[in-house]
Design a binder for these strands. Structure first.
Length: 749
RNA sequence: UGGGGUAUCGCCAAGCGGUAAGGCACUAGUUUUUGGUACUGGUAUUCGGGGGUUCGAAUCCCUCUACCCCAUCCA
């Protein structure tokens, strides 16, 4: 495993180390209501990847709690995707619907605890009662129903006695919760509809928030990993499990940012829109970011895996450049795939001094790919080359055939242009050329230097093939919808010409068409009579790039000026404190401000200075270190007190310890509540300021790092921090950093 | 607007008080019978802005700003 692991793996490792978990169990829990896309692939890689990295296992679970949208064809697609990516879900696929009876029992339990109730408000009323983000909601009058009544109603809901929407089961939490999700979330709704799996057994179906945490728990999941938009749902997740008292082997939820890729869309809704509007040929259209699409296009599972690995896992919303995906497929195919010759846009070349027929030996792989295999390449008087490979009046730096410049036919002879034949409109229709008999590939004695070797096919031997050239589906980097579609995303070339061995030998299904890109024999439309190839991705093209974008628009250098927002004014009493702090106690205004505006801090501060009259040092510690501890705690929850802080400061003031050590001691106080002087004593943290003790250590560090000494002497003065750090490390942090700094500077300068 | 998140190179992303990793993209060169590949180099005096604490801050504190998520009987 790489040393830089992502935050999820860090959590997993800590949980394993601390003994919180003995075994790692994850799960990939899609709702079977659409075709999986590369975003799912990321989730699959994370969940199955983490499980396998830590010798755990990962369940494949269909989250099928909403029968109106789900279908068995999607579960097949999901299974295919996981299998294709090379993961194994063990003996069976799990379904949330398998847990319906258990989940129902848990609901009953909640009702009995008076933690859930049957509400009979209408849908609109429920929405209205929920309040808004700034206003608290109000609870339904039905929340007062007795446990018995709730039990009765809920059972009758299950038995199908009520119509859709008549009643609903809700958790009794808090209608005023700041987190909207916690305002008595819905647990069960009535749905008289056929479930693709549970058939017609149920009239009620659990909601995501109730079913998901319980399914995780039932399966013994240790780490429930989902995407960022579920952050707010985590509170319910925990509430359900905690309220039901499900303690042992309880799962915890963690969230990561979902995958975004530029020039495409990833949402189910937008994908569906494209399919239904006929903008693409189906869910497996090679331009779509669906797994089926990539598969049809010719992407390999390895390339997708590498891509997912390469983009990392984090919590920042991000948009990955498609170029990164394209790199992964090129990188994968480069070492795997045979090179063949295909001409997409043919230009006829007649070699006037050639009359024979010969078959050339040609390796399928270049020298730098350690694979064997070759084919026979028919050569004849009439050939086709790519139209782009001849220019009558070439630009500077053009390496291919011109009236003046010869070129090598890959695996064959060098030719030069003798005559350019044009039609009435001035379009080039044919080149008359001459070949050099002694320039044959592999036994070239001609001595002619060419700048390039181009692909070609023999006119009478070439096979006609259809080539589908795909470009990005959208012209906009962050497309909104159909209006941003790239009209040229599909170009069908009906009459491309390919060397015969590709069709007759079929040495592979993926090829590199020399100098053009990687192509895939379409798994559906390809027939021997009518071969069809999909372009997977082009080769990197530094020539084409040079031509197209000679000048890049220099991005505006102007740094954005940020306007500071208004700061809330201090109250009168805060102002009084502030004036006192800056005036009488001589604190700097920032520190005084921090203290004065926070009641907890100011009272803590006052208490500390009454124990040790060192207002400035204490203020700094309180405003910086204590403030951190008090962010989410009350004073009486702290393990240390103001008097101890006063003692700590005393040791700083009389230089017993350095600021750095003080921080270390403070950490310890936070954890144990131990007296600071005792901590210093027991750990021997008294600082070393005597140069005669420090000097030898500095010498040692300098001797060990000659490179950095050289860099420093060359002017990299910020390396002083490196040396100080090393010396401090060697002394266990005890050396007086001020002294070390001075000493190091003196020695090295 | 209340709550929950997130900001490090053009795009991803490490980093958790002591020298700003790595990949993609870009760029220069070497090799090359693919303008491919491979190889070698160059790309952040600076981490959303401003202050503060410290010998030393991307990392700790204060504050401001921008973006994302939450008011489906969807997941």
């Amino acid at each position: 495993m790489s040393e830089n692991k992502d935050f999820l793996r860090t959590i997993v490792e800590e949980d394993l180390k601390s003994g919180k978990n003995k075994e790692i169990v994850t799960r990939f829990p899609p709702e079977p209501n659409g075709f999986p896309h590369i975003g799912h692939a990321k989730s699959i890689c994370i969940n199955f990847g983490i499980a396998s990295d830590y010798n755990g296992h990962c369940n494949l679970r269909m989250d099928d709690t909403n029968p109106t949208k789900e279908d068995t064809k999607y579960v097949e697609a999901l299974k295919d995707a996981v299998k294709w990516l090379g993961f194994d879900w063990g003996d069976k696929v799990h379904f949330t619907s398998d847990y319906f009876p258990k989940i129902y029992d848990y609901a009953i339990e909640l009702i009995k605890m008076d933690k859930a109730y049957v509400d009979s408000l209408s849908e609109d009323e429920i929405r209205e009662y929920r309040g808004t983000v700034t206003e608290a909601g109000k609870r339904s009058k039905y929340a007062e129903r007795s446990v018995e009544e709730n039990l009765d109603l809920f059972e009758r809901m299950k038995n199908g006695e009520f119509k859709d929407g008549e009643h609903i089961l809700r958790a009794k939490i808090d209608m005023g919760a700041a987190n909207m999700k916690m305002r008595d979330p819905l647990l069960y709704r009535i749905r008289h509809i056929h479930h693709f799996r549970a058939k017609d057994e149920w009239s009620i179906y659990p909601m995501y928030d109730f079913a998901h945490c319980l399914s995780d728990y039932i399966e013994g999941v240790s780490h429930s990993i989902c995407t960022l938009e579920f952050e707010n749902n985590r509170d319910i997740y925990n509430w359900v499990l905690d309220t039901l008292g499900l303690k042992s082997k309880r799962p915890y939820q963690y969230e990561f940012a979902r995958l975004g890729i530029n020039y495409t869309v990833m949402s189910k809704r937008k994908l569906l829109e494209l399919v239904e509007a006929g903008q693409v040929s189906g869910w497996d259209d090679p331009r779509l970011p669906t797994i089926a699409g990539y598969k049809r296009r010719g992407y390999t599972p390895e390339s997708i895996l590498n891509f997912c690995d390469g983009i990392g896992i984090a919590k920042a919303n991000s948009m990955v450049d498609v170029a990164q995906l394209e790199f992964c497929i090129r990188d994968d195919l480069n070492t795997k795939v045979p090179r063949v010759m295909c001409v997409l846009n043919p230009l006829k070349v007649t070699i006037e001094n050639y009359d024979g027929n010969e078959e050339l030996d040609a390796s399928y792989y270049p020298d730098d790919v350690p694979k064997d295999g070759s084919r026979k390449l028919p050569f004849s008087r009439e050939i086709y080359i790519e139209r782009d490979d001849f220019i009558e009046n070439p630009p500077k730096g053009y390496f291919r055939l011109t009236p003046e410049q010869p070129v090598r036919l890959k695996h064959a002879y060098i030719i030069s242009c003798k005559e350019v034949i044009k039609d009435d409109n001035g379009n080039i229709v044919e080149i008359k050329a001459e070949y050099y008999p002694d320039s044959k590939s592999g036994s070239d004695t001609s001595g002619i230097k060419v700048k390039s070797a181009i692909q070609w096919v023999s006119a009478k031997d070439a096979k006609r093939v259809e080539v589908r050239v795909y470009d990005r589906l959208f012209k906009d980097e962050a497309p909104e919808g159909i209006e941003d579609i790239n009209p040229d995303s599909l170009q069908i070339i009906k009459n491309a010409l390919i060397e015969p061995a590709v069709i007759t030998d079929r040495p592979d299904e993926r090829f590199q068409f020399e100098r053009q890109g990687y192509f895939y024999a379409d798994p559906i439309d390809y027939t021997d009579e009518k071969p069809v190839f999909n372009k997977i991705v082009g080769l990197k093209d530094s020539w084409g790039k040079k031509k197209k974008t000679p000048l890049k628009i220099a991005k505006s250098q102007t740094k954005k000026v940020q306007i500071d927002g208004e700061v809330v004014a201090m109250s009168e009493s805060e102002q009084r404190l502030f004036d006192n702090y800056t005036g009488k106690l001589n604190l700097n205004s920032e520190v005084a401000n921090t203290l004065a505006r926070d009641e907890k801090l100011s009272s803590f501060y006052e208490e500390a200075i009454s124990a040790n009259n060192s207002p400035i040092t204490i203020a700094n510690i309180v405003a910086n270190e204590v403030a951190r501890e008090l962010k989410e705690k009350q004073v009486d929850e702290l393990k240390f007190n103001a008097v101890q802080i006063a003692q700590l400061v005393k040791m700083i003031d009389d230089t017993t310890i350095s600021n750095k050590i003080a921080k270390q001691v403070f950490e310890e106080m936070v954890k144990s509540g131990e007296n600071p002087t005792k901590i210093v004593e027991s750990k021997g943290l008294i600082q070393i300021s005597d140069p005669s003790k420090i000097l030898p250590i500095i010498d040692e560090v300098i001797a060990k790092n000659p490179d950095n000494v050289a860099k420093f002497k060359a002017g990299n003065t910020k390396l002083i921090g490196f040396f100080v750090g090393q010396v401090l490390k060697a002394t266990g942090g005890k050396a007086n950093p001020k002294v070390v700094n001075e000493l190091v500077a003196k020695i090295l300068l």
